[in-house]
Design a binder for these strands. Sequence first.
RNA 1: GCCCCCAUGGUCUAGCGGUUAGGACGCCUGCCUUUCACGCAGGAGAUCGCCGGUUCGAACCCGGCUGGGGGUACCA
Length: 450
Amino acid sequence: MRVRFAPSPTGALHIGGARTALYNWLLAHSRARSDGGERGTFVLRIEDTDRERSTAENVEQILDALRWLGLDWDEGPIFQSAAAERHREVLEQLLASGHAYHSNAAKADVDAYKLSHGAERGFRGVAEACGAVRLRVPDDGETAFDDVIRGEIRHPHASMDDPVIARADGSVLYNFAVAIDDLDAGITHVVRGEDHISNTPKQLLVFEALGVSPPRYAHLPLLHGLDGKKLSKRHGAASVQELRDAGYLPEAVVNYVALLGAGFAADEEFFTLGELAERFRLERVSKNPAIFDERKLRHLNGQHLRALGLEELTARLEAYTGHSGLEGAVAISSEKIQTLADFWPLAGFVFDGPAEDSAAFAKVIDRDGGRDRLRAARGALAAVDPFTAGEVEAALRGLVERLGCKPGAIYQPIRVAVAGTTVSPGIFETVALLGRDRTLALIDRALARE
RNA sequence: GCCCCCAUGGUCUAGCGGUUAGGACGCCUGCCUUUCACGCAGGAGAUCGCCGGUUCGAACCCGGCUGGGGGUACCA
């Protein structure tokens, strides 16, 4: 089995593209494949024939995104542009055999043709001495293929236009180049987005004209945004790069994106790349387009974050924030964050000092005896020894008991005093991490505040 | 317009002729340190897009319709 991922480097790697890459990777690494053979080969091909829009930066960005996701390829990257000569050769071959012909017909000619022959009739041109090259589509019959995911898909020839496969300058177009490249790379399974369904018969016709047998095809449903429209920039983080910047883990992105349409049983959903590959079955992939829901990604990200372990999570957070010495704060925060980006807003006060949140101060300390309770808490904390989370907890619980107030009436003022905000890691752990001197100083500072 | 694909709670899905239509995210309630999150225990939320047909029986099979999506480039 040989599969491929063939992005065109006209922009960053989008989530939809990432999923296509992932499914190809999973298929190549799947153990439950129908052919029962050893691991498949994952080929990476860069479709850079659109010279205007393809850039080296985009290529690098795509490779970088794939590496970040852990989707390593076995062959490539192969650049489609490097095969220009071979493309031209095959084109000549088709021209010579009569499977293709030169034509100068333009959009207006195609429209006129449909006006006189019927809107559902595919355009048929007349061979000319020069011009673009069109592939001859038979008038009768149909081109059908058995899509691994969707079953039989048929396109009647009568409604297919003779597709243009090369420009007048001889450079070949997508549907032709793809067929030749897949053929030359020995691709056995083409797994790509649903937007390519109607391209498939054109490519199939190229194979047929060449007298070779085509690969199998599987068309993945597309990914949509929360509004049901095709996923794009306006849906927030739409590229892998943006997801990384937003604090998501590659493990979680891979896990979530795989789940969208993989057709797994719903009893379990936390998976590593390897586990995904073990479970993956191409035939099981869903036919419905899925909506990318960042909330579920967040949830899954939290799961993966916690599964990392303190040491690894600390390393990731240090890399993400650019700070070091984070371990203590990470230890008390890991249960409370869902993305790497959540960490600093939650625990940054440990390093930067309390945030200036006057609303929190007014609401929690500067009213209803908040100061008095904070003063009492200070007294209780001053006597704690050793200054551990356990001892801090015992002291504060004792205070709550003595004062007969609700726990929060004591804890929230302390929280606001040391963190500056009403949200922080657990209060006992936080206070213990800060240490007695710092804690008391911060409380004094809050008590002195007007 | 024409061609093609799709259709289970807000979202992702399980289901494969007989189920109180299951799970997860999200939402709500309770408990857990009146935060946030994790965890646990509950809860609300689906005439399985609509109409016909096949069948003793349909979310599951067939047809039509509607809705959504994709394609319709000398882009990829």
